[in-house]
Design a protein around this nucleic acid. Structure first.
Length: 204
DNA sequence: CCCTGATTCGC
DNA sequence: GCGAATCAGG
């Protein structure tokens, strides 16, 4: 397989979407994650935060076309402000994230009062959220591709984001590969953890 | 052990 | 330019 314009474009899109190199490699097919990473570097898409502390001796060798970068400025709108580094404001594992994440057709679930184990205040329950539309869009996108695992199928490395109504037959867990260390896949980490700043000045 | 991206270097 | 092997890390 070679890097056709289409493949490169998909690579760029997915990379800027925060997809991992391995996921991109799978999607593209015919390439390994190493190939993807190598390409990403050659395209100069790697650094998000770059003060360019060029290490001694290794004067960079960016021989790649600045033309390409100029040709597709859309993708590098330095809107890289995504994954919230330190200042995370974790939300408790949502009980019904599906409320806004997955519409579902639950018109036939009328008088189902939530059964609370008594003694469990069932606190936060952030009402209709203020989650970035981008993050939600990403979630909706990946949930179509979710592996839809059952509780017993979850492992330490499968996304534990619940989707749907637990009291319903079609209730499942995302199941996509989790982000290193986190309990959710990157898309769900995006809605589960919000940068404090982003939560503050969420205009519109 | 699973995964992540980063780098090197022969091709 | 490409990407496997390797490295460094969560």
């Amino acid at each position: 397989m070679s890097w056709t314009d289409e493949r490169v474009e998909l690579l760029k899109k997915m990379w800027s979407d925060g997809q991992s190199a391995s996921q991109i490699a799978k999607e593209l097919g015919g390439v390994t994650r190493n190939a993807v990473i190598g390409k990403v570097h050659r395209l100069g898409l790697s650094n998000r935060t770059n003060g360019a502390p060029v290490p001694p001796g290794k004067t960079e060798e960016i021989k790649e076309k600045p033309a390409a970068a100029a040709a597709a400025p859309a993708a590098k709108t330095d809107a890289k402000a995504r994954p919230a580094p330190k200042a995370e404001a974790p939300r408790p594992a949502p009980a019904q994230p599906a409320a806004q994440a997955a519409p579902e057709t639950k018109s036939a679930v009328p008088a189902r009062r939530q059964i609370i184990p008594a003694g469990q205040p069932l606190p936060p329950q952030p009402s209709a959220n203020e989650i970035s539309p981008e993050a939600l869009a990403k979630v909706n996108e990946i949930e179509k591709r979710a592996k839809k695992l059952t509780l017993m199928e979850l492992t330490e490395r499968t996304c534990k984001w619940p989707v749907g109504d637990p009291a319903t037959p079609d209730f499942w867990f995302c199941g996509l590969p989790v982000q290193a260390g986190k309990p959710y896949c990157d898309a769900h980490v995006g809605v589960a953890f919000q940068p404090m700043s982003a939560r503050r000045d969420r205009k519109r």
